[in-house]
Design a protein around this nucleic acid. Sequence first.
DNA 1: TCATGTGAACCGGTTCACAGCC
DNA 2: GGCTGTGAACCGGTTCACATGA
Lengths: 230, 230
Amino acid sequence: MTGSATSSSAVEPVRTAAPIEIPVRMVERLSAYRRQLRRWVAEGRTRIYSHELGALVGGTPAQVRRDLMTIGYTGSPARGYEATGLIERISQLLDAPTRQGVALVGVGYLGRAILNYFSKTHPDLPILAAFDVAPEKIGRVLDGCRCYAMTELEAVLGTQPVTVGIVAVPVEAAQGVADRLIQAGVRGLLNFTPTRLRVPPEVYVEDVDIAVSLEKVAFFARHGAGSDEE
Amino acid sequence: MTGSATSSSAVEPVRTAAPIEIPVRMVERLSAYRRQLRRWVAEGRTRIYSHELGALVGGTPAQVRRDLMTIGYTGSPARGYEATGLIERISQLLDAPTRQGVALVGVGYLGRAILNYFSKTHPDLPILAAFDVAPEKIGRVLDGCRCYAMTELEAVLGTQPVTVGIVAVPVEAAQGVADRLIQAGVRGLLNFTPTRLRVPPEVYVEDVDIAVSLEKVAFFARHGAGSDEE
DNA sequence: TCATGTGAACCGGTTCACAGCC
DNA sequence: GGCTGTGAACCGGTTCACATGA
């Protein structure tokens, strides 16, 4: 189908670490688990039951247990799961062994929102550089992140361990930005633009489509709310 | 689920034409189809094949055909699908028969980004009002949308056909905002906050969790890109 | 020939349900 | 008693593959 399946070069990935193959949805859940667990710990709690964590994240106890079983983390029937240990285990899987950072392209309202939000939270996976075309933004430091000119993109990325790019530019510019980011070594893109980016098969693209989300909400606001999810 | 349509005030909606039960993911796809079709038409094309539409949206031809079959839209083997007719059919399903609008709460960077983006595109499903606590924003008109004080929320929503609310406020304020919106008649929420909103079962909540999305991208940027999706 | 329409097989994630243990 | 660990059943969406028609 138009290229996607492609790769599958017959080679079964004997990938170094991470012997576990984690399904996409589960990565989302693990990420959510970790965040809630950090709050939990910050509130002084140390142990948690599957039904508690489930409630915190909007999932079922069975789902939580299944996930934790899959990542090989064991609790005890009497005391549930040990929170900090679980956080560590999840981090072990989700975080890169070597420091990995993010580049933000497009410092409009959306870009500023992201910078602003991530400067506060999110110690791991830092936004190392921002890029924009507007001269008045270039050289400034916004929320602790330096803003460079688009022309400097290749140079800056050459000095930073950036593996993820956020595309927060106008639609027309998206593909060009994606190409340059990938050329500069980025392997994953978070795309806020309503275009399907054309990328080589080894690059991962996640589309965040607010327009579609909004229409979905409008639709289910009328028809029976299929409860929530995600 | 399991057919039991919970609430459904006994009245089987004799809605003009929509006896179809549409799965969640399909609503997303239909929304995406429509947007691409509109571009397609804007470029002067009138007919489209399943594989073309599939490519435009990142899906397979089979998936497209199945979806169109499900919504009861028929094409011809020789000429594919008629674009404008298809747009209309999708609109018939997705859009409300009566004018329905959106309220935005929180006019920070994220709120501004949304206002800015939706004022340009999106004629149907307009953002009818914005709310914030910052005095300097109150009374101003941003991207064609008036910004009111939070205290005016109930009063303003009483005069507008708002069924959807966008929650773009700081985490701490989210639940309170959600409660008030729902109290004011909103039936669907688009939540940008990293909390699980507590809502009555008839209200639909869609969480857009940028932090989780970013971690997902970072993860798959390292491990094999499982192609794209969503 | 090439694309549509569609029953049927397929697939992978979710949920069930129960054994084991504290 | 309540909770974990987990094989097995379940379920719904996706994909296949082929009959059909221009």
